[in-house]
Design a protein around this nucleic acid. Structure first.
Lengths: 121, 121, 121, 121
DNA sequence: GTGGTCTAGACCACT
DNA sequence: GTGGTCTAGACCACC
């Protein structure tokens, strides 16, 4: 996995895990790799891996069983809530950015369609 | 002007100036306030104001006449280019974020419309 | 390292690093000293050291891994490009200056040879 | 006349006058325009024009007759000396810059020839 | 530990 | 008066 330079790696990893969860690659209640394993898999510093879990836990996306490891939450509601929050943030940033450069709603949608088509290639 | 805590002030100021430029509040070739004036107007440190102009200059949005001050570029093409780049970044981040949480194009557009309507209140 | 008074320190440091890079004293992808270390080594303020890296980064000579430090680019092409640009500027200034005082190409070359021989002493 | 952005205007004007002198466009002892006339001719601030004369005078390139105006020196030796100094500076800057990027004498001369040919087109 | 941002205040050359 | 450079020292997020 390649990381963007302008956003924290731990956030990018969380997004990747979220994506995998949504796409069914990971299941509710499934065990996640240990901090050390994750550090290897994602080629990140163990401290960063640790932070990923800490952050996910604080968002209610996973929980820790002492001595057993870290598991994805079994509460599908939490995941939906978390998704909503991410969507909210994403939308805010986007709208604000586009408005700052004078692009109105119709233009945004058009640009979005074009870009989307391009990515799908 | 109030500043958000999670983004550099100098970027927020640049966005504000860009917005004013696009909205025709500032004209091509117009003199911008001096570093010291801007520091007062935007309630920031002169060094931060200086950084705003340096960054804008590197993006081709303005230029400096030695001892005379800083002026908006006379080249409208540069401004359009800069706009396009900002839009590009904005779009990328948005699409990637939304796709990470499994939202497809139609949903994005719907969310966007809702949010837009809400902000317009 | 001693600094000339008539040129910004941060440019002189960049030139020093460039020189060391070209002479093979520094390798592609190698870690550069931290901002604070560099400040000590070059006897400059940490902010000035930071500016050196920022400027080098904008020229594509190095890149930053968050929390890890600053590294020389792995792309040898960027370095050659940067070299070419510097050479171009240098040549332009020189030619323009010499022509302004009415020295033609043959004289330039002769002066250059003499000067070069003198410096080599 | 168009001015470069990275060098003081007053130096560029002095160089222009020197060039005209060398090319015989101006003669020894000839009267130079008044500060105000020069400001108009060169499209510069009167203060800058004033500085041009102050600097040229300090280099012995011209002198002032009270109430009569400013005149080019009649001493051709002074002009040669000034030229030598300029050539010296030019050479130093050039050599230093080129060596900083690892270009040796032969390469310099070759680049110079190429560039010169290109300018002559 | 790393770099990034911000403030504060000084000095300088240029116009 | 203008911007450019430099120092000093602080706080922060990230790894």
């Amino acid at each position: 996995m390649r990381y963007e330079n302008d956003r924290p790696i731990y956030l990018q990893v969380i997004e990747d895990i979220s994506r995998r969860l949504i796409q069914g690659e990971l299941a509710l209640g499934e065990k996640l790799p240990s901090v050390r394993e994750m550090a290897v898999q994602y080629q990140i510093n163990p401290n960063t891996a640790s932070r990923v879990y800490k952050e996910m836990e604080s968002r209610g996306l996973c929980y820790t069983k002492r001595g057993m490891g870290t598991f994805i939450t079994e509460d599908s509601g939490m995941i939906k809530t978390s998704q909503s929050e991410m969507a909210e943030n994403c939308l805010d940033t986007f709208l604000q950015g586009m408005q700052a450069i004078g692009i109105d709603l119709d233009e945004m949608i058009q640009l979005l369609r074009e870009r989307y088509a391009k990515e799908e290639l």
